[in-house]
């Protein structure tokens, strides 16, 4: 349960629906139980759970018919997860609005980098890609958005 807040926050951020988010969170923890070996082998269970939660929700959105359209129509009152003041909230919201325009790997990279605040190296390790590849994907993502998404 100690990672529940983080996982539920990720599911709410992406699915923008409280009930779907809680179901998704249950799915993520169920997967942690069925993949117990992988989960226990992780030096950071939080990283494993957040990766699975992110992929699970992105897959769910892709799997829903007209998912992204419905996603945009969902109640915008779904508050972006996290903290860090108005500027950070706006960045998270911007990231979320741009997700539908990129492939799934760029989506995951953008979420882990801009929302989780991971470093390029951490995102690259998590997604099993090289740092230059992740940088390239994030630069492509930034080109869709604004100054605040630029990768230093």
């Amino acid at each position: 349960m100690k990672h529940g807040g983080s996982v539920l926050g990720r599911c709410r951020y992406l699915l923008k629906d409280a009930t779907k988010a809680e179901d998704a969170m249950h799915d993520v923890f169920a997967r942690a139980l069925t993949h117990g070996e992988d989960f226990r082998a992780e030096s950071s269970p939080l990283t494993w759970l957040m990766k699975i939660a992110t992929h699970h929700c992105l897959n769910q959105l892709r799997g829903e018919r007209a998912g992204w359209r419905q996603w945009f129509e969902r109640d915008a009152a779904a508050r972006p997860e996290g903290h860090g003041g108005q500027e950070a909230m706006e960045t998270r919201d911007l990231v979320r609005r741009l997700l539908a325009r990129v492939d799934v790997e760029t989506q995951a990279a953008a979420i882990h980098y801009h929302v989780d605040g991971m470093t390029l190296e951490e995102v690259a390790a998590l997604l099993g890609r090289s740092v230059p590849t992740i940088r390239k994907r994030l630069e492509h993502f930034a080109a869709l958005g604004g100054e605040e998404l630029k990768v230093p």
């Binding site: 249950h26 923890f29 169920a30 996290g82």
Partner: peptide, 26 residues
Amino acid sequence: GIHEAQARFEADVPFERFEAGVEQAL
């Protein structure tokens, strides 16, 4: 903020409900 989010989660989702939800997902 992180601590508060976890505390809110624990208040909103009691362990029994969490456990039942995970079992159902399994």
